[in-house]
Amino acid sequence: MAFGQLLLIAGNAREGLVTSTARGATGVVSRPVSAVERSISGVLVGFVHLFRDLHADEAERTKLQHEVTRLSGELDRRATLDAENERLRRLLGMREDLVPRSIGASVVTLRLSDQSRVVIIDRGSSSGVRPDMAVVAWGGAVGRVVSVERDFARVRLLTDPGSGAAGVILRTGAAGMVVGRGGGPLDMVYVPKYNDVALGDRVVTSGVDGVFPRGFGVGRVSMVGEPVGASKTIHLEPEVDERSLEDVLVLLEPKGTTLLSGDEPASQP
């Protein structure tokens, strides 16, 4: 039995027929259990929301109305800024389609152990999700899709020890590789030691990894390590709180991630 499972694990590397068949069979067997869990969870969430709604007082409503008014003004301002941004982008000869096409997904469950940090989302190959697509949430980058079933997908979080993303410090432009360290802060490695890095600096995705488009928040610098060789390691406090993830966006195509090649004509202003 144990030997069979060792072979099964070894088969993962080649995605062999036996492994995929075993995975498929396990999925068929356990899908009703997941459906039951989701039904129970749905009822529980419904009760929680009902309870919360009942206790939402008048002051909260007034506050929210003020907030809506403020955000409406903010949206108007953003619309002006977007137009200006587009104009400037054209001036710089960049592409217009920097905003990637995406679909929304809900988190089915999370697995946040020390050696493996995974999110299951309720969109799969039937919705166009494929491995290596980037997943983002309000606040920044979440992770990348590692495997896809018909109706759901597994997303490896940025904090998973096996994950990595190309990052850049927004203030100085210093580039590095952001890697997960389990439950703790993220590490940004291979940052040149002469680069200026300060506590609180914001790190965003740089786009050169071909998975995450540039500009998605990753974290803020919480510690700068001593230089080792030509580079130094810095610790980042993640921008996205994984524990409160509920809805995410799967970026269907990483537009804007590829750098313009020499023979590719830039769009004209």
Binding site: M1, Q5, L8, I9, T26, S34
Partner: peptide, 29 residues
């Protein structure tokens, strides 16, 4: 061992992104 194997494989299916069979093996042992 059988219960461990089955429960581990189910866990692998839902929450293990890379090594399918890892939890099955661990729980069988």
């Amino acid at each position: 061992m059988v219960v461990g194997c089955v429960s581990g494989l189910l866990q692998d299916y839902w929450t293990e992104p890379r090594l399918f069979g890892l939890n099955g093996l661990v729980k069988t042992i």
